[in-house]
Design a binder for these strands. Structure first.
Lengths: 205, 205, 205, 205
DNA sequence: TATGAATGAGACTTCATTCAT
DNA sequence: CATGAATGAAGTCTCATTCAT
């Protein structure tokens, strides 16, 4: 049940060529992630990304026709990993308690460190273009959907607005967690515990 | 009881010396706030701001020598209002309960709607320049300081890391509140109540 | 036989008013001279000049309708002083020897320190406008004329191209003197003597 | 025997990596030289330079990240040619007489016509930036160094201030020569001879 | 296919000059 | 007259994107 479809290209051509291309794409994405995380989406230039990846600007555009397209893939990638984690939690089904869910969600946010800062930067940028707009919506939907399904398990009593409101708050609180930890790395475990408890307390109402 | 200095006039910004100028500055700030809120800091162009304010680009630069200076003033303005609210809460002194504090903080975040989105956008931008960097730090310090003092009242038992960690989480949760409400305006009261309760539950541990 | 007409305005209005105005103009000119000397003609802004003079930009434009006009007056002022010095030398008439002339010219260049740097900066700027163009030509003409008349006294044997060529070289060498001294102030007297001798040797052929 | 480093390629300027680029850089430099010579450094706009070179503004900035960088390269190029000429003179060693030196220096100044006017304009500009400041210092040092070494050959008796002062005057007189000739082209040979004799007379004391 | 040069719209900022108060 | 706000053309520089080799 892994990551839906991601950016899978059609399956043809000989392995070596495909392999090299895949590696190249991975490099470029990593470079983009790093540069965007460091400078923010707008300030991250395509040239800087290419340089960071040790590629030429032409090469970069060979794989990503647009800056927005690059952002989109980053968003997708992150969304896929998020989806996997949510699915893993959902798989626990009835074994899922409020405590476990809270802990799992916090862990999920803190484990998904790769690309996260870049993704946040992209999400913050209001002008990432319509292509990224779609990916943004999808990422959002994935998270909302996962949270809603989890909540239905641990809080089967909630319906309508109460459920939506809880899901909403949960969503934003989760989003805030990495920032907190990044802000005070030396308090990482403390903050993690605090937030785990906070969420649990909050979810159970 | 206006917090610290003189709101924003103290920042690097050529102060208007005539009534006409004062009015124009207000217009420009409002326009900047609007445009930055809509497009994000980087994508907000000085030209667009001037147009929105019905002023010429030269007029804008008459009062704000830099885009960063403009951002700085916005930050300061917001910081001052925030400081006032925090001071009002602190003034309650021993009358302050966890519930009241929680309610007060949530209200504070939701009342300070003017400039808020723009301020967040500026805070998100990594390259708002060193001038804005200072204002950013100051705004942050104001909030942290206020929160810490409030916490010392309602949670005199907490010390060291525990206190810092709680303050940190609180800070980020507060910051998330307006986004939640903005996200689902029709659930405003529900979310407000939820978060009030969540914070109370969280503060009291 | 002092400074031809300089910038004398028509003689009317009461003294106090005229006096204040005269003072104001002098202040503005001094400020302009300073700023232009420091930054060069192009980089010297009208605003900076007004500030330096403790006047408002509007006030500056009251007296000088254009930046070029300001430059023109500066050129004129300098030209007048130059003319006076040249006339003083010419007054010696037959008492003038090569040595005295050389010494007198070097002294002239080194005494005329006020406005000199600014004047050079204006002369260097190729775009000081047609108004200043006229003043530039006049200043140049004054110097050339003076030199030619001086040379006719000490070198009555020279005619035509020989005279023109000598005058030309002399002109440029004189212009270079202040720069030399400014370059190595501690060698001022040495350089002064060197150049005096050099000019004498040169003039006598 | 090209003097120091590699002419100009060593300066801050994104080096072209294709033949096409090399040609364009040459064009751009020529255009810059022309425009700067015509209008002065400040008044020479990057746009005008690009147009003159038949290139787009972006193309210009591809190779010269700054107007100052462009100036720097021009300065360096000129300095290299100057250095070569000085070295050629120095190579004469003991065969060098005052007359030959004087003639050689005048010839050097009059031969180096390419870029000269532009270089002078750049040198005159007070705000060519720190990058150009360095190149300016280097150019100056090259000339001073060469002159000093030449003087040590023909005037081994001079020491200390006397030497420095002579070198200084020489420097400025050399700088003035092209202006003289440019001022009265029809007198070129006359002026050239005059100045050669003047310098000889001056150098020998 | 890979590379890097080319392009030009558009961003920020400056400044001479005008004008209302 | 004095003041300082208003104006906008123009300048430097950036960067996503295209294209020739």
């Amino acid at each position: 049940m892994s990551s839906q479809k991601s950016t899978a290209e059609s399956v043809e051509m000989r392995a070596p060529k495909r392999e090299r291309g895949r590696q190249r794409v991975a490099n470029l994405l990593a470079a983009a992630s790093k540069i965007i995380a460091e400078r923010g989406y707008d300030a991250a230039t395509m040239t800087a990304i290419a340089v960071e990846a040790g590629a030429s600007i032409g090469s970069l555009y060979q794989f990503f026709p647009t800056k927005a397209a690059l952002a989109e893939v980053l968003l997708d990638q992150y969304g896929a990993r998020l989806g996997d984690r949510l699915n893993a939690l959902l798989a626990l089904q009835t074994g899922l308690t409020t405590a476990k869910m809270s802990e799992g969600l916090v862990a999920m946010m803190l484990d998904l460190t790769a690309d996260r800062t870049a993704v946040m930067a992209i999400l913050d940028a209001r002008d990432a273009g319509p292509e990224a707009g779609e990916a943004r919506r999808q990422l959002r939907a994935r998270l909302e959907d996962g949270l809603e399904r989890l909540l239905r398990i641990v809080r089967p009593d909630l319906k309508g607005d109460a459920l939506v409101s809880l899901r909403l708050s949960l969503l934003y609180m989760l989003k805030a967690i990495p920032a907190m930890v990044g802000d005070a790395p030396q308090l990482a475990t403390q903050v993690r515990d605090d937030m785990t408890r906070a969420l649990a307390c909050y979810i159970s109402g």
